[in-house]
């Protein structure tokens, strides 16, 4: 340890506050504390008044805040004043009137004395020996086995957290060959003529009669329908055959983390996911052109049925939504 260049001058001597020396100042401080506590009491009065007297749907206009709910506002301000000024009073009291002489306490090293440590080790050895754990290996091993096995039972109990296990279900949607596309909201079948060039629509599949649509269905079925001029497509022959008169259908569930890909920019024909900004090019089968998504949005082949309504020509040929281990992405 190097020698300190300047020796410790010790604690600075105590400097009296005004209230320490002057009884008048002390009296003044006492009054200030009382005023703070009284302000708090007024806050509680405001709180009670707001609870009872201000109707819950009363609106009020205030600068900066704008139009706001008076009931919640005054209730909150009352509570804030009542609590804040109790605190201010207490702190002001402590700072002006309570003794401010610094106190010095000694600090001992955390480590026990050597003899205590030796005694501790001896005790452990002695008491351990009486149980004979070190000697009786049979007991030790069977105990280890039973504890380990017992630890497994809670894991087993958690098995029924899910009745189903993930299998093919993750890769399946309600889109079949011939499934009609329904508007969402509205549940109406769509004809190609309903969509103008440049339009975008969210659609869901027509479910078999009697089957109620759940959020689980929507989480995989949601589809985006976009119409552009057919000559603007930059697709191979197969993908082009999946479109119908310039109408192309993509899964709306982001291939990155499953958010709804909801932002469509008409001028660039880009789809953007607002969660992580993955950007997909509609003209090139939703190819990823920016952001963290690694795969295009799955495209659903569409055509029209005998009545002229848009239908799925076949199911998705890959799983929709985010990737998972068992997903066959080839």
């Amino acid at each position: 340890m190097s020698l300190q260049p300047i020796q410790d001058p010790g604690l600075p001597s105590h400097v009296n506050r005004k209230a320490d020396a002057d009884p008048k100042a002390a009296k003044r401080a006492e009054q200030q504390v009382a005023i703070l506590f009284l302000t708090s009491a007024l806050g509680t009065v405001l709180f009670i008044f707001s609870y009872v007297g201000v109707p819950q749907d009363q609106l009020i206009f205030l600068p900066i805040l704008g139009t706001t709910n008076a009931h919640q506002l005054f209730l909150g301000l009352g509570l804030a004043i009542s609590l804040f000024f109790i605190g201010m009073g207490a702190v002001h009291w402590a700072k002006t009137l309570m003794p401010d002489h610094e106190v010095v306490d000694v600090r001992k090293e955390q480590r026990s004395k050597d003899e205590d440590r030796a005694a501790f080790v001896a005790t452990i050895k002695e008491q351990g020996a009486t149980a004979g754990l070190g000697r009786r290996t049979l007991i030790k091993r069977t105990l280890g086995l039973s504890l380990g096995l017992a630890g497994l039972s809670p894991l087993l109990l958690l098995r029924d957290c899910s009745a189903e296990l993930p299998g093919e279900e993750l890769a399946q949607t309600n889109w079949r060959a011939g499934t009609r596309l329904l508007t969402d909201p509205g549940d109406r079948p769509i004809k190609p003529g309903d969509l103008e060039v440049g339009a975008v629509a969210q659609v869901l599949p027509l479910l078999p009669a009697g089957r109620k649509r759940t959020l689980n269905d929507i989480a995989k079925d949601a589809l985006l329908l976009i119409r552009i001029r057919p000559e603007e497509f930059n697709l191979d022959a197969e993908r082009l055959s999946w479109t119908y008169q310039g109408i192309i259908a993509f899964s709306k569930i982001c291939s990155h983390m499953g958010c709804a890909v909801a932002l469509y920019e008409q001028s660039t024909k880009h789809l953007l996911c607002p969660c992580h900004q993955s950007t997909f090019d509609v003209t090139r089968a939703a190819k990823v052109i920016f952001g963290p998504a690694a795969r295009p949005l799955p495209q659903l082949p569409i055509s029209v049925d005998s009545e002229g309504y848009l239908v799925a020509a076949s199911p998705f040929n890959e799983a929709v939504g985010p990737s998972y281990w068992e997903r066959d992405s080839e």
Binding site: L75, I86, G87, G89, V91, K95
Partner: peptide, 19 residues
């Protein structure tokens, strides 16, 4: 007094934000 008072100050400030 200081720590107890400070609790009320923090609570009061949070209530103010909530309001």
């Amino acid at each position: 007094a200081k720590a107890g008072g400070f609790f009320f100050i923090v609570f009061g400030f949070t209530a103010f934000l909530g309001a």
